[in-house]
Design a protein around this nucleic acid. Sequence first.
DNA 1: CATCGCGAAGCATAAATATACATCATCATG
DNA 2: CATGATGATGTATATTTATGCTTCGCGATG
Lengths: 159, 159
Amino acid sequence: MIISFNMVMKARRQAAVLELVGGEDIRSQEQLRARLRARGHRVTQATLSRDIRDLGLLKRSADGAYQQPGAEPQVPPAAGAALQKAMAEYASGVDCVQQLVVVRTGAGLAQPLALAIDRAKLQDVVGTLAGDDTILVISRDARHAKALARQLEAWSQFA
Amino acid sequence: MIISFNMVMKARRQAAVLELVGGEDIRSQEQLRARLRARGHRVTQATLSRDIRDLGLLKRSADGAYQQPGAEPQVPPAAGAALQKAMAEYASGVDCVQQLVVVRTGAGLAQPLALAIDRAKLQDVVGTLAGDDTILVISRDARHAKALARQLEAWSQFA
DNA sequence: CATCGCGAAGCATAAATATACATCATCATG
DNA sequence: CATGATGATGTATATTTATGCTTCGCGATG
């Protein structure tokens, strides 16, 4: 294989793609295209589709952003799995008001479940407050709260 | 929150989605829709788009299949990184015929590179066969072989 | 120099996915 | 019972992504 000018440009562009995707949320190939153009790479969406496939990137359905495999800021899998089991076992309902998520549990189960939530260290959980059968999860803002509630609710539904 | 019939159906359907995605390669929501219909769930693509978002699934650009976060059969990052370096250093070309991937190397380098491929335990590599300057990687089928070849080729290009 | 091979990339378009809006079911309440 | 809230879903469509085919650049070769 001869190393041509085109191939060098391709490698440099793909390196830039990795850097961009790692640094901010890129939700579409057109958005990526704009960022690359600002760095001097002028290509079409079709080329980016191929680059993304070659690089093996993943697209998160939750928010539409691309990520590299292995990079999973969402749920550190170990803690996440434990929380998932705890939610399935203890939680009876999840609700969301403003930036707060309310988790209902059976009587006396709020404390242990809140502990599991704390241990999971979910990125946008600011803190938790547990009573007897209710947990208040405080999130950074309404948007994060909504996503968080969806996640918790999905987990809680596998009894 | 009242638990309605609809919500139970939704939870059962989403459980089925996770099971299906874990068990085989699902590459489109229409394909998923067909599988679900065989299990008695009749819904539209739009609903599946929402389910997939709620479940936080990831879509692999490499082969278009959905996966759960954390499940990364593709490239266990440690071994993968070693292989990536080995490919960059030793490989000179990658080709794909049917379910076979042919990797060309410099003279005498096939054995060590084949070893690196074996160690990476890539999910759809059935086995490898190394001569002096050529490695034959046997994959499960043509589709997997194509994806594998793309990945190996991408790695080999960062010299 | 003509021509061929090959990888990269563009163009046009197909395929896949997301979403605004409408509808329906379910339960609460006057 | 009428009315209203809420959540799930369907319908139609917009948005996003993938791909068949063509073109271009660059070296190899006759």
